[in-house]
Design a protein around this nucleic acid. Structure first.
Length: 507
RNA sequence: GCGUGAGUAGUUCAGUGGCAGAAUGCGACCUUGCCAAGGUUGUGACCCGAGUCCGAAUCUCGGCUCGCGCACCA
């Protein structure tokens, strides 16, 4: 991670803001001391996460994907077939003197350039003994015992071993034949799923950026491998310039932004197919639509060594966070026919498509895999601006269209007639918006609270409102106010929140 | 998981082997015309467990959690 600009005080402010504002609490359950890697979204955080998820839904839906929801628990035979049961299970070995833990296979690979994947436990132990491999930390001997450490959370269902899903993707592949019929036997088609996944991380860190339970959002395209370079959406996006950071450039060292078009990336063989290029573009659009600034996003190509067992083409999207530097938030993978072939073999059910000429084929799958916790957290990280009293106002400058609460309503003073009138307006606006209503404290205090929650507009009801049926609308970022007729209020707020109108356009 | 530091109101911090403090926040009342305004008042905490001790929030041990470094993160 480069650009790691850290400031202790900022970090502390940020951490307390996340809790105090009701964004993310934890580790949960707090009153029992907490269990690392599990969090509770508070009211404001949940509203924000909903905005993120709805943004994901919108983008996927308008690009030809349909949403499904599968179970979070699946029998282990599924995970055996998908490869997770094996690859999510590491063989570890402990140092006798300092009891540091290492992955046994990695230890061998690093020292001797030999793949230990196929070694039995005994072979690994023998190899370590024969080659006198010592503990990298303290140069001590290893305890001659291989232990298993699994990222899968297991359970038992009806006497059958089952596991909580470590990714939603696998569950999305299983009903392939259902999709095939639903989409009237015509490929390609796209399906996505938003839901919880679970990984028993050894040491979860950094709040929800690496939790043990998290929400994934994964889009999958099923396509005839022969059609990967005949992708309908490609022409529309091929001229789009994206911040590709290739494996080769990475070796040169520092990142410097250089955007190239999807078309050029394909020509340079950075990516292998039109459909893959389109997927990268779509992933990028997802993050742009959250309101993440361009310069905070980059696409990083996976090194050969870090590619997942199923992946062909593999790129990540990374965001440059204030508190953590460049952070992975999304992976785009060409999973080829790996999954469908595996599940077909294992279940005995053919998972195929048919070409017009009658040929059968196993579809390839392209995956856009991200989550909704990291983007939610990223929005907080990127847009929280702490100010000291006197030097300005602390504001959560979340992009207006993503703000947890749409509008606040304040009676100028805590008087019955103003409260009553405000509540009427509140009731009306709640038909269309998430509304916050507050009459406690000075008007200035309430503007500040509202800004710290990221609410873009604050409506103030004063004595004139009772007479002329108008209120003031205050803009979060400019702090400017405009007088608006109550009967026009709803439409104006609509135009403002959808971006059709700018606050400065108001009379 | 290893090493290391830490855990006291919602938040940020102070503190002592003997009644637990501040600031800020939050609530109520008064006041207040767009202000992080003012006054009065209230609310609220020693991470959990065991031990030593007349007495532990303070010392010791264990656990849990958090920060940082390492490792892990298909």
């Amino acid at each position: 991670m480069e650009n790691k600009v850290r400031n202790k005080n900022n970090e502390k402010d940020f951490a307390s803001f996340v809790q105090e504002a009701g964004l993310i609490w934890g580790p949960s359950p707090e009153i029992y001391g907490g269990l690392a890697g599990f969090y509770t979204y508070g009211p404001l955080g949940k509203l924000l996460k909903n905005k993120v998820e709805n943004s994901v839904r919108k983008i996927f839906n308008e690009n030809g994907f349909r949403e499904i929801e599968g179970p979070t628990v699946l029998p282990n035979e599924v995970w055996k077939a998908s490869g997770h049961l094996d690859t999510f299970q590491d063989r570890i070995i402990k140092c006798k003197s300092c009891s540091a833990v290492f992955r046994a296979d990695k230890l061998i690979e690093e020292n001797h350039d030999v793949s230990a994947d196929s070694f039995s436990d005994k072979e690994i132990l023998d190899f370590i003994k024969k080659n006198k491999i010592k503990c990298p930390t303290c140069k001590g001997e290893f305890i001659p015992k291989i232990e298993l450490q699994s990222l899968m959370m297991g359970t038992v269902v009806g006497g059958k071993a089952a596991s909580l899903r470590p990714e939603t993707a696998t569950g999305t592949y299983l009903p392939y034949m259902r999709y095939y019929n639903y989409f009237r036997k015509k490929l390609p088609f796209g399906v996505f799923q938003i839901g919880k996944a679970y990984r028993n991380e050894i040491s979860p860190r950094q709040n929800v950026l690496r939790g043990r339970e998290f929400t994934q959002a994964e889009g999958q395209i099923f396509i005839d491998p022969q059609e990967k370079n005949n992708w309908e959406g490609y022409d529309k996006v091929k001229k789009e310039k994206l911040p590709f950071w290739s494996e080769e450039e990475q070796k040169k060292g520092k990142y410097s932004e250089k955007s190239i078009s999807v078309e050029d990336a394909l020509k340079k063989n950075l990516i292998k197919s039109q459909v893959y290029g389109w997927c990268i573009w779509l992933a990028y659009v997802q993050f742009r639509n959250f309101g993440i600034p361009e310069e905070k996003i980059r696409l990083r190509q996976h090194h050969k060594e870090e590619k997942a067992f199923y992946a062909d083409d593999a790129w990540d999207i990374e965001l440059n966070l204030n508190n953590y530097g460049w952070t992975e938030v999304c992976g785009v993978h060409d999973r080829t026919d790996y999954d469908l072939t595996q599940h077909s073999k294992s279940s005995g059910v053919k998972l195929e498509g048919v070409r017009e000429n009658g040929e059968k084929f196993v579809p390839h799958v392209l995956e856009i895999a991200f989550g909704t916790d990291r983007p939610t957290y990223s929005l907080i990280d990127l847009f929280y601006e702490k100010k000291e009293e006197g030097e300005g106002k602390t504001t959560f400058k979340v992009p207006y269209h993503m703000s947890p609460i749409d509008v606040s309503i304040f009676p100028l003073m805590k008087k019955e007639e103003l409260k009553e009138f405000s509540e009427k307006i509140k009731k009306e606006l709640e038909k269309s918006f998430i509304v916050d209503y507050d009459y406690s404290g000075s008007i200035g205090k309430r503007y500040l609270r509202s800004a710290m929650q990221g609410t873009p507009y604050a409506i103030t009801v004063d004595y004139d409102s009772l007479k002329d049926k108008s209120v003031t609308v205050r803009d979060r970022d400019t702090e400017k106010q405009k007088r608006v007729k109550i009967e026009e209020l709803r439409d104006i707020l609509f135009e403002l929140t959808t971006g059709e109108k700018d606050f400065s356009d108001l009379e």
